[in-house]
Design a binder for these strands. Structure first.
Length: 618
RNA sequence: GUCCCGGUAGCUCAGUUGGAUAGAGCAGCGGUCUUCUAAACCGCAGGUCGGCGGUUCGAAUCCGCCCCGGGGCGCCA
């Protein structure tokens, strides 16, 4: 049992009391839930029970009288002070104050290597879709969010004992890729670029050129004709349109050669993929995001499955033909999911369906989580529903489908609240953004602590920069847009990554000082959280395991950030109010050292679960 | 047109799924370093929770209508 969890312990005890008060008249579990919460008003108690009001309604009684009955029937043992009528407040809140010895017992039970996180009987598998980069395109802040949030979610599941499999669903197939492949082939042919020296910047430029050249201005031409503009203007537009159509036809030819695995074309495509992926993996590594080559499964890896899958779905009556295209209709959604165009081509929904099948049935995922921006909400709603209908989301032998979830996130905005762009209006290159964060962090670290050796300052700056960037992204509710500001995230004041690192550094410093003074750390010294600052910190630490669980359930990492920030601020208050090494007596010192140790482990563990590195000194 | 997401202090954001007097951080004002890292701590000030109705003992939270902002909407990915 969770013997360290005060909410669980109080729930158990008060449920017994409520069952007695209800007297069999009420039996639903929900109605008997004691509704234990952290107390909204700490001066009145540590926890509160909100059950009396709801129960009174069901029993047709006065809520305060019901509260009195609960108080009378409750036995809180050694954990909390005995309840009396004085603990009833307002309409029927019951305030509960733990005994110091009770808090100490909870802390002892919590102080295990697992920090109260239960190990599942059977490891389950979660697949996290993250990164989502496209061939030949520079990464931007949207990818940053996907990497940071996706990696954090994967790590939280790992911390809870799951097997987590990251999947970088590389956009490496389809007409746009054929367009740029064709464009690169032309450039190589003309001797303007060398395949060996190809950079992502080259590719990004060629990608945009290819897009532009293939985009026929048909609407412009129609408008020009309707308004009977001058023959010169119409001729220019006609030339543009026919040029674009020719370019497009060549790109389609390249697409066919790619699909036929024609070696010369494939070699160029492979080179484009290598350049893109190596840049992507390099950024992941610099950010401490655990994505490797092995986690990459591009759209091209599904190419052979698409046709058979669609035929299979048609044969089973799941898909149908509509206006020449193949669609899957799903209940509750007006828009059907389009899986084959009338010209026979496939769409990204087709690939995503096959990806779900592989992730669930081959990789064995009981949950598949997509860290993709919120604009894709409708797409995933369609694909998920279609996959469930098709049976693609169900593992062989499983009673029902695995959970498919879209962990959608909002946009990154600049300080002007417009989409985050450079002054010239381009996307900010991720590599540039990371470099700037590192450089700013290093300058600040060296200014704040000039005594640090150069290489250590460099390493600390890396941790600080990553903490700063990730913290902003993770500490906000992911569904909302957020405003990106180097100044704010690196200001090191308040609710920032560096503040968390600093709290941990201060604790580690205490232990270094302890060693210098020859003070031994006793990992079994009795806890005695008598001071208010100690008690507040202790109760906050105990929420760590349930918070991790709630992050896995909600896929909202910011809940963990909120807790860790609370732990860090409560530690700072404790640090200010309660001398540790300079405590009045050895037993207080030993107790406080243990509290420091627990705090450090919760902070390090929690930051680790978010993918944020720590430092020994700052 | 329709669907989805957002709107909380000057700014940036939380709010444990319906609980008490809505909380932090920045910015502002005022305090605290001869003692474990002041990247800190303490205090003051700051609010029609977009608006109006409804549900009930009780609403930032649930329901309805409206306002503002962003996004999506069958043959692009």
């Amino acid at each position: 049992m969770r013997q360290f969890d005060p909410v669980a312990a109080l729930t158990e005890r008060l449920r017994a009391a409520i069952v007695r008060v209800a007297g069999g008249g009420v039996t639903e579990a929900e109605a008997l839930d004691p509704r234990i919460e952290a107390n909204k008003r700490p001066e009145l108690g540590d926890f509160q029970c909100n059950a009396a009001m709801g129960l009174a309604k069901r029993l047709g009684k006065n809520p305060r009288e019901v509260a009195q009955a609960i108080v009378k029937a409750a036995d809180l043992g050694d954990l909390a002070e005995p309840l009396t009528d004085k603990d009833i407040a307002g309409p029927g809140f019951i305030n509960i104050r733990l005994r110091t010895a009770g808090v100490a017992a909870l802390l002892s039970a919590f102080d295990t290597p697992a920090l109260g996180v239960p190990r599942p009987e059977q490891a389950e598998t979660v697949v996290v879709d993250l990164c989502g980069v496209n061939l030949a395109k520079q990464m931007h802040v949207g990818h940053l969010r996907s990497m940071i949030i996706g990696d954090a979610i994967a790590r939280v599941f790992e911390r809870l004992g799951w097997r987590s499999v990251r999947q970088n669903h590389l956009g490496d197939w389809g007409l746009p890729i054929a367009m740029v492949t064709h464009r690169v082939a032309e450039e190589v042919q003309a001797g303007r670029v060398s395949l060996d020296a190809l950079t992502l910047d080259d590719l990004d430029r060629l990608y945009k050129e290819a897009q532009r050249e293939c985009a026929a201005d048909n609407r412009g031409l129609a408008t020009a004709r309707r308004w009977t503009m001058g023959p010169k203007a119409i001729a220019e537009l006609e030339a543009q349109v026919s040029g674009a159509e020719a370019e497009l036809a060549e790109a389609k030819g390249t697409l066919l050669r790619l699909q036929a695995r024609e070696p010369a074309t494939l070699r160029i495509w492979q080179r484009i993929a290598d350049v893109t992926l190596s840049e992507c993996l390099s950024i992941c590594e610099r950010l401490g995001v655990k994505v490797s080559q092995a986690d990459t499964a591009g759209e091209s890896s599904y190419a052979g499955e698409l046709g058979p899958a669609v035929d299979d779905l048609l044969a089973r009556g799941i898909a149908e033909t509509s206006e020449g295209a193949t669609v899957i209709r799903v209940e509750g959604l007006d828009q059907p999911c389009l899986i084959r165009k009338s010209d026979g081509g496939f769409l990204y929904a087709t690939t995503d369906l096959c990806a779900i099948r592989r992730r669930v049935q081959k990789i064995g995922a009981s949950r598949v989580i997509y860290c993709v921006d919120a604009r894709q909400s409708l797409h995933f709603a369609q694909v998920f529903a279609a996959a469930v209908r098709a049976g693609f989301a169900t593992r062989p032998g499983a009673p029902g489908p695995s959970r498919l979830q879209h962990a959608a996130f909002g946009m990154v905005l600049g300080e002007d609240h417009r989409p985050f762009k450079t002054r010239s209006g381009d996307n900010v290159r991720l590599a540039d953004l990371i470099r700037e964060a590192f450089e700013r962090a290093e300058a600040i670290v060296r200014a704040k602590n000039p005594d640090l050796p150069g290489d250590e300052a460099h390493a600390i700056a890396r941790a600080v920069a990553i903490a700063a960037v990730k913290w902003v992204d993770l500490s906000n509710d992911r569904i909302k847009d957020y405003v990106f500001s180097f100044d704010r995230m690196l200001a090191f004041d308040g609710d920032t990554g560096p503040y968390l690192l600093y709290a941990l550094v201060r604790i580690r410093s205490i232990f270094r000082k302890a060693a210098e003074r020859g003070v031994a750390f006793d990992p079994r010294a009795p806890f005695d959280p008598a001071a208010p600052a100690e008690r507040a910190l202790a109760l906050s630490l105990l929420r760590f395991p349930s918070t991790l669980q709630s992050v896995a359930e909600s896929l909202e990492p910011h809940r963990l950030c909120t807790l860790l920030y609370e732990v860090a601020t409560l530690f700072s208050k404790f640090f200010d109010a309660c001398p540790v090494l300079n405590a009045d007596d050895p037993s207080t010192r030993a107790s406080r050292l243990r509290l420091c140790d627990l705090t450090a482990r919760v902070l390090a563990d929690g930051l680790g679960a978010l993918g944020i590195p720590t430092a020994e000194r700052m």
